[in-house]
Write a protein that binds this DNA or RNA. Structure first.
Lengths: 121, 121
DNA sequence: ATTGTTGTATTAATATACTAATACAATGAT
DNA sequence: ATCATTGTATTAGTATATTAATACAACAAT
């Protein structure tokens, strides 16, 4: 799974988003130990400080916790993970609908476009 | 219509996006004269240079053209506007689907969520 | 003819993001 | 006991984004 970073948004925000996606999608399972900050940074091709910032962000949301000298672990709180997953989905949904509205598409048209796209794959 | 700017993305990119939305949604009709760079900048609360950069971006895409000393005008090419509108919609659609996929939602689930959202409003 | 407005260009200053290079204390492995 | 690895913190340097302050040439309006 590549770290596809763009330069149109702050790197640490993109890192935090990717890490969150990996947790809520189960790629990083509840309770498991995550790679070290340095390893993650090397893998993503960024400075450890930048990766650290992303991890702190996740920590503030309770998605990971750092055992000071043994490593960092994904939360075991399945409910929190599930809640986060659905909250993020709702957020994306709302943003997407708003953008489509600003482009002049009605909710019905938007829904139809999405359906068409799904069927064409 | 407010200029709701966040600080998580480059300002001129956000300005360009908003201006484009206003054109493809018909808020700035084909052929009409746009407010001056300075007026747009003042309205959006940004520096004229930043607004200028956004306008150049639109100009590179043919959506507006600058008559050197009389002002700037929206293109009269209705086809280009329509094409741009649909291209942007497809882009948003693709990005949205990809994000939902990364959150662990199938296309069917995503489609269903969107439909539910539309019906609940 | 003068004045104001247009788009455009230039230069400097400031704020921020990211990288770089360390350092430290605590722990597990050897 | 020694050593490598852990998260964390600090400081400096560099690149970029944005603002700020102008300036200019061309045209419209007066």
């Amino acid at each position: 799974m590549p770290w596809q970073l763009k330069n149109d948004r702050q790197i640490w925000l993109q890192l935090a988003q990717i890490l969150t996606q990996r947790i809520v999608s189960g790629q990083y399972a509840p309770g498991v130990r995550m790679p070290s900050v340095r390893d993650l940074a090397a893998e993503a091709g960024v400075n450890p400080n930048t990766m650290q910032r992303a991890l702190v962000y996740l920590e503030e949301r309770g998605l990971v916790s750092a055992q000071r000298n043994t490593g960092r672990y994904v939360t075991q709180d399945a409910q929190l993970i599930s809640d986060t997953r659905h909250a993020l989905a709702q957020e994306e949904l709302t943003l997407f609908c708003e953008k489509m509205r600003l482009l002049g598409f009605t909710p019905e048209e938007t829904s139809q476009l999405l359906k068409s796209k799904g069927e064409s794959e």
